[in-house]
Design a protein around this nucleic acid. Structure first.
Lengths: 195, 195, 195, 195
DNA sequence: TATGAATGAGCCTTCATTCAT
DNA sequence: GATGAATGAAGGCTCATTCAT
């Protein structure tokens, strides 16, 4: 009989609250008020405040990875896949600015201090990128001598930094406009021929 | 407020403590103990706990930028400069693991929640990179149509992500080994000719 | 408020739960789970958590007193009555270990903080003992100069302490074995002639 | 530099507060107010609220046992010793009514739920009584066939019950007046000859 | 009548900051 | 200046009680 939507409502409220104030400056009662429930109710669905953040990370990262995986599933060309990954990354960030704030600002804290929360999901995202690069190498589109792991981190880092700048810079422009340039620079860096 | 070494001692102690536990999980008394002074003494030199973090960021980022500026001052070739920036970035991280932990993990929090602490210094670092890229464009070494700001953020993000992975991954390998590959991929991405 | 067994089931569950954790460390929901009902149901039969304890005490003490009264009703000899009271006291404790835990450990709290819960029943027990002693005085079996009230409290206290030691000492031995020695010592103390 | 009187002041305040409301109905802030300090200060001297109660028990019981030991040290006659123990027990209770309330009402809870707090000291008191009884047996003043452990518990229980009645009965009379009768009844019960 | 999700007052404990020494 | 004991506001979490179903 426990309301199956409550956990989601709580997480959504937490995203908004954390986006505004950060995890450590947010009170559980803030989340409750934002969710329109009593603070005690939160503890029917989450054991601790920490668990809210951990669950939030895990769930959102998993959704994200699934989305990305699905988006590139039908493509044959690794280069196209990379372009789609970048475009989708920025699109997701742009369409979920609150979530973006939380993820961009809190994720590293979370990775370090919350028992590896989301570490698995984050690395799944890395795996997707790395997989595409390896396909590219196999297909001859990407340099055979490319250090794939390093390139993977570079692409992620590049996208992540663009996203962070956009988030911290009050989102004054369209992030998705940067997708093509970013993809192009990266692809030029790793491909065998011109892009 | 006499002792001119105290602030530095406090900041150095804070770096070690924050590296271990993060800013929010560190107590002022932890910093005091690490510095070998009484916690009240800290308040003779810093108004609040926040101020320690802000000062820490500002000072260390400023030192870093100065170091980078100096390192590339004598070079003529923008490509060489980029290679040096990457190498130096990784070298600094590797040689100051405690500082690296703090910067990699806490900086975004700091930028968002501590009244733009270090925003000026961080953007100065961006300026250095951007300046080199613009030189490169002027010198014909870098594509004329390169969106320089985006490329700047990409390089920073790439380095930053490599550094973060290294820090979170318990520094199991030599970060500096990644400097050349990173620089090469980036330069291939932005230069007019092969690198 | 129909089901006439529910209150008893709740009290029995409460005895088991209180025995395990004590009144203040037990949750209403613990009692509900132990009774196999929902916690809200408890409030159909008891106004507050306090009331459960108060009712429990009152009911069990009343049963006890009735049992003792009945057990000695047919005897003529006060000395025999005292022996029976002691034997029965220990037998009841031994046969209801959960109840014993609650009564031995919580009763004083209850007497002090729960509006004299069970005060009436406890004093009824004292009355029984005192009545027997007075009979004994009248019959010449007990010293005429015996301060009867004091002796009453002494006997109760002695039995109570033996019971408490047994309860706290994890019931490692047979409490009923102590009945005769206890009765004998007490009777020697109060009787006119040898026992 | 930490104030060496503070712990005692806190314990004394706690005794008054616990006497009034019981342990579980007392707030740490009540103790602080009673002690004239801030509630945070309590945590400079005690790790938890529990620890206050445990320390209180241990300390007071140890003082008590030491007092009793000293009081009977010079006597030769076991019978006199028993009389002194009873008199002193009641005198201590009467002179420290707040402490008496706490000990009489909370001690059993404490023994059961606070990791054996004071168990050692309580049993030390039992040891004193038992030692005297054994002396008495050796000296031929007390029956050779007396079950000493049972008699020890009986005497303690008797004194304890008198004390409890006095405490719960609003101390309407002089408890010390009961010392001689109590001792006499007990001694008649255990001695070889008349008392 | 029975349920159990929801409520929100309450409390222990922490810790940044102050200030008497 | 240096100390560290003292402060007290703040917040995570619990749990008796209520009430819509």
């Amino acid at each position: 009989m426990r309301d199956p939507d409550k956990p989601q409502q709580i997480i959504d409220a937490a995203i908004r609250v954390f986006a505004r104030n950060g995890y450590y400056n947010s009170r559980v009662s803030d989340i409750a008020r934002e969710a329109g429930i009593a603070s005690g109710t939160i503890y029917l669905y989450f054991k601790t405040k920490d668990e809210i953040l951990v669950t939030l990370f895990r769930e959102k990262m998993a959704e994200w990875v699934a989305l990305v995986r699905k988006a590139i599933a039908d493509d044959r060309d690794p280069v196209t896949k990379i372009r789609k990954i970048v475009a989708l990354h920025f699109k997701v960030i742009e369409e979920h600015p609150d979530l973006a704030e939380v993820v961009q600002v809190e994720l590293r804290q979370g990775q370090k201090f919350f028992r590896g929360a989301s570490a698995h999901e984050v690395s799944a995202y890395f795996d997707v990128i790395q997989g595409v690069l390896e396909e590219g190498v196999a297909a001859g589109r990407i340099r055979r001598d490319l250090p794939v792991k390093i390139a993977t981190k570079m692409l992620f880092g590049a996208m992540d930094q663009l996203a962070t700048s956009w988030v911290l810079g009050k989102r004054a422009y369209r992030l998705t406009d940067a997708a093509d340039p970013v993809a192009t620079i990266f692809l030029k860096g790793v491909c065998t021929d011109g892009v």
